[in-house]
């Protein structure tokens, strides 16, 4: 059974159709990349999956269960974790506490177990040394890592990553990709919106192209990238 399914999901903001009849299935442990020009409706698609935005039409299923009307908090508990495109740390809390909130609420862990779990994630994401620093004082790379680490602390079975590699140097990007690959290797399903294509294509098994809210194509990254239509729309290359 698919872990996440969208069935003909549509959403308009006024006259603008930002998500137009999108359907796809994500298998447990699968990694799916989403690309598309700015304004193609990628982040909106995430908000529809997390429940921050309700669709006008269509359904969202988690483990075959219809969660179209389920509030975001319950979807987190059900296993959907997300990172934000623009990092949104809890600035006055420490890095460790940022994760602890996620582990105790979304992850459903308690007491010492939650603490040990969070420290383990911090070590794996390279945030161990700044665990007791206020999250408000972190650098961009550290904030991006915190987004990933905090999403991991909710113990997701599907993790949604929104342009997590954007704005990083090549070296930083390589480290982050290694961490994401490790998460994927443990069996967590991933849906990843990214403009940094080499990073994305080194992890995902399938690639979806969105354009004006419509799903243009979905398939193996090589095939999708080779498509003339995609090259024209997304990369601006005349076919």
């Amino acid at each position: 059974m698919s872990i996440l399914s969208l069935r003909s999901v549509s959403k308009s903001f006024g006259a603008l159709k930002v998500t137009d009849d999108v359907s796809f299935d994500l298998q447990p442990g699968e990694a799916l990349g989403i690309i598309g020009p700015n304004g193609a409706g990628k982040s909106t698609l995430f908000n529809l999956i997390t429940g921050n935005i309700a669709p006008d039409q269509g359904q969202v299923f988690l483990d075959g269960r219809d969660v179209t009307r389920t509030p975001p908090m319950q979807r987190v508990v059900a296993g959907v974790g997300r990172s934000f495109q623009i990092p949104q740390p809890f600035g006055d809390l420490t890095v460790y506490e940022n994760l602890l909130v996620a582990a105790r609420f979304g992850g459903g862990l308690g007491g010492r177990e939650a603490g040990v779990f969070c420290m383990d994630i911090l070590d794996r994401t390279g945030l161990g040394p700044v665990a007791e620093k206020k999250a408000g004082g972190l650098s961009l790379l550290q904030r991006k890592r915190l987004e990933l680490a905090r999403a991991m602390a909710t113990r997701p079975r599907v993790i949604l990553l929104d342009e997590i590699a954007g704005g990083l140097t090549d070296g930083e990007c390589v480290e982050l990709v290694a961490t994401i690959r490790a998460i994927h290797a443990e069996g967590t399903a991933i849906v990843w919106i990214e403009h940094v294509l080499h990073a994305l294509n080194s992890v995902v098994e399938r690639l979806m192209v969105l354009n004006f809210g419509r799903m243009l194509m979905i398939g193996a990254p090589d095939e999708v990238m080779a498509s003339a239509q995609v090259r024209e729309i997304y990369l601006g290359i005349e076919a």
Binding site: P72, M73, V76, V77, V101, F105, G107, T154
Partner: peptide, 9 residues
């Protein structure tokens, strides 16, 4: 907003 995204109501 972020609190909601980690399961806080």
């Amino acid at each position: 907003n972020a609190a909601r995204s980690v399961g806080v109501d």
